[in-house]
Design a protein around this nucleic acid. Structure first.
Lengths: 108, 108
DNA sequence: CTCTTGCGTAACCATTGAGTTACCTATTGT
DNA sequence: ACAATAGGTAACTCAATGGTTACGCAAGAG
């Protein structure tokens, strides 16, 4: 089932969250490690991590008093599938689009 | 140059806007045609179209008193490029991630 | 046991965003 | 010229979002 994980789109809409995912490509990190790189407060990062976690884009694992967040790229496949419907358009390099213009703009 | 077209992420974050893009895959349409399919008002659609237009995801062409909006998938390539950095992660099916865990969680 | 550290959460504030209704302009048809 | 139609824009409301500070709690460290 798919539930409502379509909030992936929402999750990646924020540049800070994209930057977090970016950093996490280098491996899992604790919250303070992540927050240290941004000029926003730790609670703000914590909230971003929650959004990412709800979108299943990160996993959370407790390690003593640390919490390690790791990238989970799987939900991005949904994005990839969504893009598929549009990919054909840019591979067909817009010629059919132009054709459509002409077929519609028929001047009498 | 890239200017600040990164609002593509923002533009596709809204489900209504994604639905509009979806419909536009079938060819350009006038605003009323588009708005007719949604249960939101025409001004709302108009604003969505503006956002999409600013993200260059649609083109606007005046045809008499109509305005034809057409899909322009080109900015979605930016998304595709962004995804590229993550695609390797789901093709390398998370094994390197696991490796990273182990190399970090070295217990003495 | 006590102090410190890591982090989530609550409470709050400012900004943004999506939606509405009302109005105005431009173009077409009679 | 005038009525009707297409659609953008202004003004406003309300909810969601991103940020903050203050606090609380669990897990080492001494």
């Amino acid at each position: 089932m798919v539930t409502q994980e379509s909030n992936v789109f929402q999750a990646i809409a924020d540049p800070t969250r994209r930057a977090i995912l970016d950093r996490l490509r280098g491996g899992g990190q604790a919250v303070n490690e992540i927050a240290g790189r941004f000029d926003v407060s730790r609670p703000a990062i914590s909230k971003h991590l929650r959004v990412l976690h709800e979108a299943r884009l990160v996993t959370e694992e407790r390690d003593g008093r640390n919490r390690i967040y790791r990238l989970n790229p799987e939900p991005l496949r949904e994005l990839d599938r969504w893009l598929d419907d549009y990919r054909r358009f840019w591979t067909l390099n817009l010629l059919n689009l132009k054709k459509h213009v002409e077929s519609k703009g028929k001047k009498p």
